[in-house]
């Protein structure tokens, strides 16, 4: 613990109050909050990508009864604030579910955050994927057809690999936004890093110090996602295209 002591002392000289780090309980709740944020990120990334693929498939299906309602859902979802959606889901939907099935409501606040953010970001993923799918040249697909590919083979071997490459920069962009969006969880008292910090600073009045930590934490998380995304782009790069 000596390095923590040194850190608190050193920042103390700069006029910053990080003494909560020396309190095992408060330190523990902060670290737990960081862990919850990390879990939120991982769950919503997986969830939003799954939603995005499903919605994109519906949008380009060419079936009006499927594409029409999906388009409506996309427009409503991306044109309303996520915070409002979260309140609606948690305060209205969740309450209705609780009334119907009583105390056994399986949806925790954590689950609602994952659901709402997954749907919200999934909509943006879907539009990015749709752009990618529509950018695949028709003649390339015709070539696959002429070689005897079945529809399924054509989709999985040619269309999707190319569409994902075209959509990747937008998808990474969305995922970085998603990381930052998880701070919304604090609005319905999910114990993420933001909520844990609020609890600490209402006791200690050290808002600036905690803000610095939160910003560094989210900055680091976004940076990791950014690096992974760039790495994936480099790995999937088609030589001779782009630069």
């Amino acid at each position: 613990m000596s390095w923590l002591d040194a850190f608190v002392q050193w920042t103390g000289w700069l006029g910053l109050d990080y003494r909560f780090l020396l309190d095992a309980y408060e330190r523990g709740s902060f670290v737990a909050g960081a862990w919850v944020t990390l879990q939120l990120c991982l769950c919503t990334m997986a969830g939003s990508l799954a939603v995005g693929v499903a919605l994109a498939a519906a949008l380009v299906s060419g079936r009006p009864w499927l594409a029409g309602p999906t388009r409506l859902f996309v427009e409503v979802t991306r044109n309303t604030p996520t915070l409002v959606q979260l309140y609606c889901a948690f305060l209205v939907l969740n309450m209705l579910i609780s009334e119907v099935i009583g105390g056994a409501n399986p949806f925790t606040p954590f689950a609602w955050v994952v659901i709402v953010i997954s749907l919200h970001k999934g909509v943006f993923h879907a539009e990015a994927l749709r752009a990618g799918i529509e950018a695949v040249p028709q003649v390339t697909l015709e070539a696959a057809t002429s070689l005897g590919f079945s529809r399924r083979q054509r989709l999985w071997r040619v269309e999707l690999p190319l569409a994902v490459r075209f959509a990747l920069p937008s998808l990474v962009n969305n995922l970085i936004e998603l990381v930052k969006m998880t701070a919304l969880a604090s609005a319905i008292a999910v114990g993420d890093i933001t909520y844990a910090s609020i609890l600490i600073w209402t006791q200690r009045d050290n808002v600036l110090e905690l803000m610095i930590l939160i910003l560094l934490f989210f900055g680091l998380l976004s940076f990791v996602v950014n690096c992974l995304g760039r790495g994936l782009e480099a790995r999937l790069r088609m030589p001779g295209y782009g630069h």
Binding site: E142, A143, A144, S146, L147, V158, M238
Partner: peptide, 12 residues
Amino acid sequence: GFVFQQYNLFPH
């Protein structure tokens, strides 16, 4: 077999 004007190879 079919050979196209624009080659249409699989770029990936």
